[in-house]
């Protein structure tokens, strides 16, 4: 089984979010991690599939050389090789076209995405790549069982789950439940240094939707503390002051 896992790099979950005067994300002092959905669920489920059925797991990242550290972590967790498309991406469709250009030439059986990146929360790229490759797509997969080349997938839908069946090749975006996080061990980290990380140039693609400005959400007014003995007061405030009931 030939498996591709798409990974991105995001600010760590507790990072302080601020912007510079020219309206770009202020990365000063920010620690970066592999996007949790990509690492914990997409990558680990990809590795499990390989362990079960044989094959290879390739990681792809679209980004600048700074991202190599994140990619090496993926190799340390167990991926066989990696590709980085060298560029500084600014829009989802641009990234999708890079991934599709690589995948088209390789014919992967399963392409894994995270359900979304935790910085821009787009949830767009997996669907875009599926369309560019004319492949079926299942979003927010929480469980995958593979028999031969038939995948049975559970996915999160509003208020419950949907169970669907599809034959490979297929594109999946992964949510909590798909796998359990794996911590890289010393041997993995040492081996990662010798695994191939190929850097390829980007293909031509336009940025059709880009960020032009940022603002911070309006500040909350100070909390109103309520006497625990007086829940009638809280209920009254919810009805008559907050007016949300």
């Amino acid at each position: 089984m030939k498996i591709l896992v798409c990974v991105s790099k995001t600010p760590e979950t507790t990072a302080k979010i601020s912007f510079t005067a020219d309206n770009t994300f202020n990365s000063a002092g920010v620690q970066y991690i592999m996007n949790p959905y990509d690492e914990w669920y997409a990558l680990v489920r990809g590795l499990e599939l390989k362990e079960q059925a044989g094959g290879t797991v390739t990681i792809i990242n679209v980004g600048p050389a700074d991202n190599d550290q994140t990619i090496r972590k993926g190799l340390a967790i167990g991926a066989d090789n990696a590709v980085r498309v060298d560029c500084d991406p600014k829009s989802s469709l641009y990234v999708a076209k890079q991934i599709a250009a690589h995948a088209k030439a390789e014919s992967y059986d399963v392409i894994f995405f995270g359900k979304e990146t935790i910085d821009y929360n787009g949830s767009e790229i997996g669907a875009m790549v599926s369309e560019l490759l004319d492949l079926p797509f299942i979003s927010y997969a929480t469980k995958l069982t593979m028999e031969g080349n038939t995948a049975t997938v559970e996915r999160d839908i509003e208020g419950g789950i949907e169970v669907a069946e599809v034959d490979t090749p297929v594109v999946l975006s992964c949510a909590k439940g798909m796998a359990e996080q794996r911590i890289p061990n010393m041997r993995g980290i040492m081996m990662a240094k010798r695994k191939p990380l190929t850097v390829v140039p980007a293909v031509e693609a336009a940025d059709l939707a880009v960020t032009v400005g940022f603002e911070m959400p309006p500040a909350k007014s100070a909390v109103k503390m309520i006497d625990p003995e007086n829940m009638d007061e809280l209920v009254k405030l919810l009805y008559e002051e907050a007016k949300i009931l």
Partner: peptide, 20 residues
């Protein structure tokens, strides 16, 4: 859940800019 599979596909198919 369905919009999350459709928005990206439509954007790619129509070569359109998208914001989710």
């Amino acid at each position: 859940s369905s919009g999350k599979s459709l928005l990206g596909r439509l954007a790619a198919r129509l070569d359109a800019g998208s914001v989710s």
